[in-house]
Design a protein around this nucleic acid. Structure first.
Length: 270
DNA sequence: ACCACAACCTGGCCGC
DNA sequence: TGCGGCCAGGTTGTGG
């Protein structure tokens, strides 16, 4: 579920409560959450380390620890991080409990069990292949054009490819294509310079606005204090099948692109 | 290298 | 009420 604006919102919420805290104990209730080593080993490695920074790369949350290593978390479809001020019992879908030195607990809640924790010394083992950050200065229109110009796959599928640009998921792909007026099935290499420019602008616009609204909540996304996001109230097309296009009133259509639900205005997006 | 698709999981919803 | 089928915001592995 969580895309870049959701993960960034979670990162910002967790900074104050986690920075400077020492991990006293980690308990994996669903051991396969530990992705790159046995869960007992990961728990032992994390114990006693102090949180020195929280960063984000694409949809990954990176927790820098001292002595030096990184705990990297991907929430996948339904993962949430809940922060509690004191000892708190596990809920039905709690998969990992992290106890901190001030008595607080960070719970990883994940209904569908797809979320993953990585513990690494070199973060590039996990995030090394990601494409550029969409809101960073180094993600230029030229770089985007270069990434698209030999690809025949539908532009919607290319936007979901984290090696082209990191952090876009199904919601913001559909929303950005709507603002750019581009049909989701258009082959990547069929976009002209003007269209690539508009799409680049649209991606940045949508992600910034979603960030301001602290993400989109449809079902399971929650912030660490369990607040919802608000950007779903501003969606133009996503999950609005049959409702009028906000620009031309034509009913929004839903199709499958690369196996993913895709929402668009058949009149505005060509 | 690129692309399509199944697999990983649980639960909600819809129709019968 | 119960059951089958479909749906879900992500990523990876497999095979063409």
């Amino acid at each position: 579920m969580p895309e870049m604006p959701e993960v960034e919102t979670i990162r910002r919420d967790l900074c104050a409560p986690l920075l400077g805290r020492t991990i006293e104990r980690v308990t994996f209730l669903w051991p396969r959450t530990a992705a790159n080593m046995p869960s007992e080993e990961m728990a032992a490695r994390l114990q006693g380390r102090k949180v020195v920074a929280l960063r984000r790369r694409g949809k990954y949350l990176i927790i820098d620890l001292d002595p030096a290593c990184h705990l990297i978390i991907h929430l996948r479809m339904t993962g949430r991080l809940h922060l509690y001020p004191g000892r708190t019992p596990a809920q039905k879908h709690t998969r990992v409990i992290t106890e901190l030195d001030n008595g607080a607990e960070l719970h990883f809640w994940d209904q569908r069990k797809f979320g993953r924790f990585y513990c690494v010394e070199d973060e590039n083992e996990v995030v090394g292949k990601l494409g550029p950050e969409p809101l960073a200065d180094d993600w230029t229109v030229e770089a985007f054009k270069e990434a698209l110009n030999k690809r025949r796959a539908p532009i919607k599928s290319l936007l979901l490819n984290q090696q082209i640009v990191a952090g876009i998921g199904n919601i913001y792909a559909d929303e950005a294509l709507f603002f750019a007026g581009i049909h989701p099935l258009r082959p990547g290499n069929s976009l002209n310079d003007d269209e690539v420019w508009h799409l680049h602008q649209a991606i940045r616009y949508v992600l910034r606005e979603a960030l301001k609204a602290q993400g989109s909540t449809f079902s399971t996304y929650r912030r660490p204090g369990e607040e919802t996001g608000a950007y779903q109230l501003q969606h133009q097309v996503f999950r609005r099948t049959g409702k009028p296009c906000p620009v031309c009133r034509t009913p929004i259509e839903r199709i499958k692109v690369g196996g993913r639900s895709t929402h668009f205005c058949p009149r505005c997006q060509v």
